[in-house]
């Protein structure tokens, strides 16, 4: 079954979620990938949404992360402050699952502005819960399309701290574990620097390096992501038949 790079990105990201773990699902592509994981290899995944929903099992894909379909069949609905305080800050989130406009060499995420904060070229939505999630989840997974302008050496604004800034904070969670893109999978070494760990089928290393804004380091042996299975593609296309969510991943 033929597939697009955006579909490969969602499938590869979904596969990183483990059955029975608790994932705090961010808006956009992570929402699509988490719902794919729940419907494929991780049926006991606990999806947590910052709106306050714990253990969501939506029958349709929520467009926003506060949709009514998240409440139907969920295990609990908390007030938002309770969710952030007791669930996230209380250490009950295994994985934070985020998207951003930019990610840099050390996994800092920007979802606030392109350009200077006070004179932005592009004003983006801002943190929402992203900074809170990046600092407090046990690990963070990030997904975004791989383009040079989205992979600068230094992000224009640190909305959500990555590997370096977090080191000064004794209470912070585990930080970024991987960035899953439409070209491959990037992980972080012990110094907190990003490196290329895997490429998706049909993608060569040179293409990834060309679309990264700094001299990206590579694993000694770069793995190749297994292609999406027909089952994964079927579930994914059923989730987003009009391609509303995937369009942004192209």
């Amino acid at each position: 079954m033929p597939w697009t790079p955006a579909e490969m990105m969602v499938v590869a990201a979904a596969r990183r979620l483990r059955d029975e773990e608790r994932v705090l699902v961010g808006i956009g592509l992570p929402n699509l990938a988490a719902n794919l994981a729940l419907r494929s290899h991780a049926p006991r995944l606990t999806m947590v949404y910052e709106a306050g929903v714990v253990g969501a099992r939506p029958r349709r894909l929520p467009l926003s992360i506060g949709d009514p379909c998240l409440v139907e069949g969920a295990r609990a609905v908390l007030a938002m402050h309770e969710l952030f305080s007791w669930y996230l800050q209380g250490g009950r989130v295994d994985t934070g699952f985020l998207e951003a406009a930019q990610v840099d060499r050390f996994g800092n995420l920007n979802s606030t502005v392109i350009g200077a904060y006070n004179r932005p070229k592009v004003r983006l939505p801002g943190s929402g819960g992203a900074c809170d999630i990046a600092l407090l989840a046990r690990r963070t997974l990030i997904m975004m399309p791989h383009r040079t302008e989205r992979f600068p050496e230094r992000v224009d604004f640190i909305t959500s701290p990555g590997c370096t800034a977090r080191r000064c904070l004794s209470w912070a969670g585990g930080g970024p574990e991987a960035v899953i893109t439409d070209l491959g999978v990037l992980e972080f070494d012990t110094e907190g620097e990003m490196y290329l760990a895997a490429v998706h089928p049909g993608v060569d290393e040179a293409k990834v390096l060309a679309q990264t804004g700094w001299p990206l380091r590579c694993a000694q042996r770069i793995a190749e992501t297994p292609p999406p299975t027909p089952e994964e593609l079927t579930v994914l296309r059923d989730l987003d038949p009009a391609g509303v969510h995937l369009r942004r991943g192209r």
Binding site: Y117, S127, C131, I158, W171, A172
Partner: peptide
């Protein structure tokens, strides 16, 4: 008080 925000650029702006 909360455990967040530090390490981001938000306190700077």
């Amino acid at each position: 008080p909360l455990r967040s925000l530090l390490g981001s650029d938000l306190p700077g702006v």
